[in-house]
Design a protein around this nucleic acid. Structure first.
Lengths: 202, 202
DNA sequence: TTTTATATTGCACAGCGTTCAATTCACCTG
DNA sequence: CAGGTGAATTGAACGCTGTGCAATATAAAA
């Protein structure tokens, strides 16, 4: 039983979030349970509910953390890469992250925000941060004439890669006999960038 | 209380499937319930479980039906369209179906087949049927030199459109300020087909 | 020390999927 | 037609789930 002297409010929040992330990573969204999180931190269910209001908000905060982790993962991988290689790193990094953190990644897309409940600011912010990393790289590669379309094009390219990644982890590609999903996605991205006059080699 | 004289085994199966589809359409995967289906058909939960073994199999059978509905939806829409228009119809039809049958469409991708449980034959078959419709149209448009890659390219194009559609219904595009997701997806598809030397006008 | 505010609990509730002994029923046999 | 048989169907039990809330425990203030 947790005493209030053990952890301050913020401390308790991140304690729940840390263990919540762990439960999500182990069990996946379908088997995620606030009760299990409570058990692990040695507090009762009521406390978890009191801190986050409801399970959906807890899941969304976990997802926000996943987005941050993901952004950092991509930035790290970009490291010293240059030119076309940076784009490939982004695509491959997208796939690698999803595969390495399968359950965390899936939870982002398996969770539906209930009607009438608004998305927490943190989730929107972290999502935009990830998009920002990619948008920056896309803008670098595009010619000046395409600058106005860069944001929209970035969204479209992310959607393209996302679709391939979702089909890989969801088993659709396995069913269709597709061997190297990441290469396919990369090919589509390069194609589009070329079509827009991007300054990268073939 | 259902008497066995009321419905034969097959009759009962499709009764469950019909009402199951309805519950799924109304409530979505997250709130789908075998008990609710049982209530609607006037049988007990045990009967539903007896016919389908477990809820996952029932969901997969419902999803198989959704795939069939989807294939027919696309074939109808292809109607008298010709050339490039057929490709646009496929892309737009993908989006329209998903939007019109939001919960049924989402259920396909929200449901994860539990480990150790194999996919029923019907689901795999209906999924391939849908892919077949699209593969046929892609093959028609591609030059003979690309025939060998047609199947893989088809899978990639479906993934591309799927990614855009998922982002639309999941709210990602709204967050990013993307206005016309279907047009974006269509642009990507046309780009790729052009890059492969497809015989369609710009 | 007593009061006050609130963090925390633990139970109740309604729902879920799954299991299974008991029951009901349709049909076959004599 | 009567009795037996096997399968269909039930309904309760079990262990989960998220949520709400009155009661309690506790730290801080008076």
């Amino acid at each position: 039983m947790g005493r209030r002297s053990d952890h301050g409010r913020e401390e308790l929040e991140s304690l729940i979030l840390d263990n919540g992330r762990q439960v999500m990573a182990e069990s996946g969204y379908a088997r995620f349970s606030a009760r299990e999180v409570a058990k692990r931190i040695g507090y009762s269910v009521g406390t978890v509910m009191h801190v986050f209001g409801n399970v959906d908000r807890l899941v969304m905060e976990i997802n926000a953390r996943t987005f941050r982790l993901w952004s950092e993962w991509l930035e790290e991988r970009l490291g010293g890469a240059e030119g076309r290689a940076r784009i490939i790193v982004l695509v491959q990094g997208y796939f690698d992250f999803a595969q390495t953190h399968r359950n965390l990644w899936s939870a982002i897309y398996e969770h539906r925000v209930p009607e009438g409940m608004e998305m927490p600011e943190t989730l929107a912010a972290e999502r935009m941060r990830l998009t920002g990393v990619i948008a920056r790289e896309v803008a670098t590669v595009l010619p000046a004439t395409e600058a106005a379309n860069a944001a929209e094009l970035t969204s479209s390219l992310i959607a393209t890669v996302h679709g391939h990644c979702a089909f890989m982890l969801g088993g659709t590609f396995a069913l269709l006999g597709v061997a190297r999903p990441a290469d396919l996605a990369a090919a589509r991205v390069i194609e589009t960038l070329h079509a827009r006059g991007a300054l990268i080699d073939a």
